[in-house]
């Protein structure tokens, strides 16, 4: 199924997905998904649980390479470059396309070490530089003021919401171009959630954000574009206001109005 964002609304497309299929063994989890992702916008992926939106997201930075039995076909490009091409290293792909997970997953290290983990493995060893990166990333993730006095304390001492913002800071520190977020606020309380949502609004100035969410309200609050998934298929994509006010597909409308779980 070919669904595209209406031309007049489009900025430059950062990623293009053409006819993506994802299989787990014999089971096909994503069926012929095609999607264009505009640059410097927030794209929300919504749909009932089990519809394949997380599976779709994880294909975009080749996380499925790590799942035994998982197979991805189709063409996925980042700035026109096929990220599944034979000569492309998944490590480089994940460097350019960062990911924030459902549950915060800080490493059992200090706050500082968590943030500079990426820059360090990518070869940055200058302490002063690392400190700059750390501060800039934590500021961008709206966490600096809360942790600046205890950068050497364990990241595990932070609250859940702080941990998640730390994980975002950790992604920002490697300066990706696209940030994938897999229900980043689902494990957090309402106050922490609203902080994350504000943060996402800030992030789109510099990054392209693709976010999976199970909350339609959240999608409505933070995203510019919304894609609706059902049973492994991309049903409809459009500007968020269109999707929520004038859905073209009956199934989208049923979901928006609460007829699916």
């Amino acid at each position: 199924m070919q669904v595209t964002v209406p031309t007049e609304k489009r900025s430059l497309d950062k990623m293009k997905i053409e006819d993506m299929n994802v299989y787990y063994g014999a089971f096909q989890a994503i069926k012929h998904g095609s999607l264009d992702v505009p640059e410097n916008k927030v794209m929300a992926l919504i749909g009932p649980s089990g519809c394949g939106k997380s599976t779709f997201l994880r294909a975009l930075n080749r996380m499925h390479d790590l799942t035994p039995g998982a197979r991805v076909t189709g063409k996925i490009t980042l700035d026109g470059q096929d990220i599944y091409a034979d000569d492309v290293d998944p490590v480089t792909v994940r460097h350019r396309i960062g990911m924030v997970f459902q549950r915060p997953n800080p490493f059992p290290k200090s706050i500082f070490e968590n943030v500079v983990y990426g820059p360090k493995i990518h070869g940055e060893n200058n302490q002063k530089k690392l400190m700059e990166i750390c501060e800039r990333s934590l500021r961008s993730a709206a966490l600096w003021d809360e942790v600046k006095d205890r950068l050497n304390r364990s990241a595990l001492d932070l609250s859940g919401g702080q941990q998640q913002r730390l994980c975002i800071a950790r992604v920002l520190a490697v300066e990706p171009e696209v940030i994938l977020m897999d229900e980043p606020a689902s494990a957090l309380d309402p106050i922490a959630t609203s902080k994350i949502e504000d943060l996402i609004g800030e992030l789109k100035r510099e990054y392209t954000v693709i976010i999976v969410t199970h909350s339609m309200q959240q999608a409505a609050r933070i995203s510019d574009f919304t894609t609706f998934f059902l049973l492994g298929e991309l049903i409809e994509v459009g500007t968020t206001s269109e999707i929520f006010t004038r859905p073209k597909d009956k199934r989208t409308e049923d979901y928006i109005t609460g007829r699916y779980g």
Binding site: L66, V91, R94, G98, M99, F101, N105, F107, P108, H122
Partner: peptide, 18 residues
Amino acid sequence: VPDSLREGSLALGATRWE
């Protein structure tokens, strides 16, 4: 060691050995 740490590191562009 929870899988989330593996994923977190790989998603930051680390190799398996790193």
